[in-house]
Design a protein around this nucleic acid. Structure first.
Lengths: 342, 342
DNA sequence: TTGTATGCGTTATCAC
DNA sequence: GTGATAACGCATACAA
């Protein structure tokens, strides 16, 4: 393979026997050019297999046509879907998406901030998964637009695209209550996370709506990961025998799955012995045994919208949007009436 | 937020009362500079919160410090893990990864080729998932380095990082045969895909090794997706009642899962009525009921290695590496001896 | 050791 | 309609 130099506009101009500016004009039709000469240019471009050097363009235009997507863990299908949504929106407008997966063992702050300042990306879409980045993030936001997905930072008002988690949580909880459950337990997410707070709030609304004292329902705190769900379930089962819950409300599917694993390991059946619901409706959740009742978030759509918001911001439109996307409860097999009602 | 112009080297130079080149020298320590002046520069940089414009750098250096990762579907956890591996390797050397998820509805060829030619990326890591891109890919390879992951193109010799699928397949199949199964059926992947061919070959080796005529084992062709596994299973069950298989060898987990769904829907139990094995060992596979016996591929490692190979190529080292990575069979609950041996 | 000047490939301004 | 030409921000050969 001969490592030949890529052709530049100059080469094209020479071949087409026109000036460089003319080539530029046809490339961006940013100026008038006689039909005949335009064709000569087009031909030369094809002939030389020319394509513009985007680095030079970026330099000139002061914009990289690139955004960054920060995501904690691609293996989580929910995050993967959000990311795909971002990708889709970006590629529709010819924008590149660079993937940033902060390594837990380093402190990403400086790196990410540097990335944005380096002008290699015009903006960033941020999904921390932990809710723990106020300082770093906010620094970022001073150098360029940042939009949050699936989370929100209480104090500061960064644009964010989120779901109505509270409503979704209220609805699944209501479903469980309708089945007759009265002794419940919640496995919640990281208290620092907005979504975790919202879901908890939603559960409590449902409790109150069903005449249950929200404060009477024990809340076990997890971290949205599978293992923490299992641990919480174990803690619950190890609690006083006389008030074992008949249903577990888990703030996400991963923890619900962990909880189910734990129950299974202890010989308990779901839902006959204990009902379980999750949140997120991961693709895999419908493949479990029993199929997990959950709340679907439009993950792909969230990513897509977030990207749109970012693009708006980049174009100067201060269209903060910010409506809550809708969730929908997926009723499946992991819930049934409690034993005493059967 | 005042949209102030980002500082340039010139500004730094002015503040530090040195020339532009001196600033450049300390930035890349590409030249000698007196300690005292170096400090002045460093201070100015900090003071102005300066960071170099990477577009300008790319233009000058003729390299973007960016690679592209082409992946068909992030929702597939195997692909997600490979991608994370790539990301990890890249961020270790300060290289950006742009994510390309070809939309099935467009023809990606031209777009991708253009991306590479535009010099926004220095190289590409390619994972088609379908094996169907000879032309487009090969075009790509003329404009810059391309390395394949988890696949290989028969005719042309592009660098590729793959696993020893054949061996893994041989080993699971052997495991199944050891359990006493003699009536088997294979649900294979897309015949165009190298991995599918390898796995099929591995199965056949095991058959032969167990004294079975490889040609006597029916092969149903799927496309590596869940639905196709279900369809294939349905086709098998609808076959002649007198030679129903006692075990299903599925060329990947997704199809195995689809098959299990189908079996379950028809009231068949796994593994009591029929054993099932997969390939890939997706994280979710160990969470199914029954837990799926599968072959683990070091997905993360594959991505990591692929990125390494690409970087070597970019630095001119023609280190094609190319050893096969090892797989390891994960024996779990979806296989048991056939009924007649119990 | 330091500074000046030129070029990287494009875009855009301004004469012609 | 068209074509010089000056930036864009940085790196570097070369002169001082």
């Amino acid at each position: 393979m001969v490592a030949r130099r890529r052709p530049t506009m100059k080469d094209v101009a020479a071949h087409a026997k026109v000036s460089i500016s003319t080539v530029s004009y046809v490339l961006n039709d940013s100026g008038p050019v006689a039909p005949e000469r335009r064709n000569r240019v087009l031909d030369a471009i094809r002939l030389l297999d020319y394509s513009p050097n985007e680095s030079a363009r970026s330099l000139k235009r002061r914009s990289a046509s690139t955004i960054a997507m920060v995501v904690p863990d691609l293996t989580n299908q929910f995050f993967a879907m959000v990311t795909e949504g971002v990708q889709r929106a970006a590629s529709a407008v010819d924008v590149l998406v660079v993937l940033v997966v902060p390594d837990a063992t380093e402190q990403p702050e400086e790196n990410q901030a540097k990335l944005l300042r380096s002008q290699r990306v015009d903006g960033v879409i941020y999904l921390s998964g932990t809710g723990s980045m106020p300082a770093a993030i906010y620094d970022l936001a001073r150098s360029g637009p940042v939009v949050l997905v699936d989370e929100q930072i209480p104090g500061r008002d960064l644009p964010a695209v989120v779901c109505d988690s509270r409503r979704g949580a209220r609805e699944v909880a209501a479903h469980v209550l309708e089945q007759g459950h009265r002794r419940l337990a919640v496995i919640g997410g990281p208290p620092a996370l907005w979504t975790a707070q919202q879901r908890l709030a939603g559960y409590r609304e449902a409790f109150a709506g069903a005449g249950l004292d929200p404060d009477s329902v024990p809340v076990h705190t997890g971290d949205y990961r599978l293992e923490s769900g299992a641990a919480a379930a174990a803690a619950i089962l190890d609690g006083p025998a006389d008030k074992q819950p008949t249903a577990l409300l888990c703030a996400n599917d991963l923890m619900a799955i962990g909880a189910m694993e734990c129950l299974k390991a202890r010989g308990l059946r779901v839902p006959e012995d204990i009902s379980v619901v999750g949140f997120d409706d991961l693709p895999m959740s419908a493949l479990l045994t029993p199929r997990l009742t959950s709340v679907r978030q439009p993950a792909h759509e969230m990513g897509y919208r977030a990207a749109k918001v970012l693009f708006d911001l980049l174009e100067g439109n201060d269209d903060d949007a910010g409506e809550l996307l809708a969730t929908v409860v997926q009723i499946r097999d992991s819930v049934c009436p409690p034993r005493e009602n059967r």
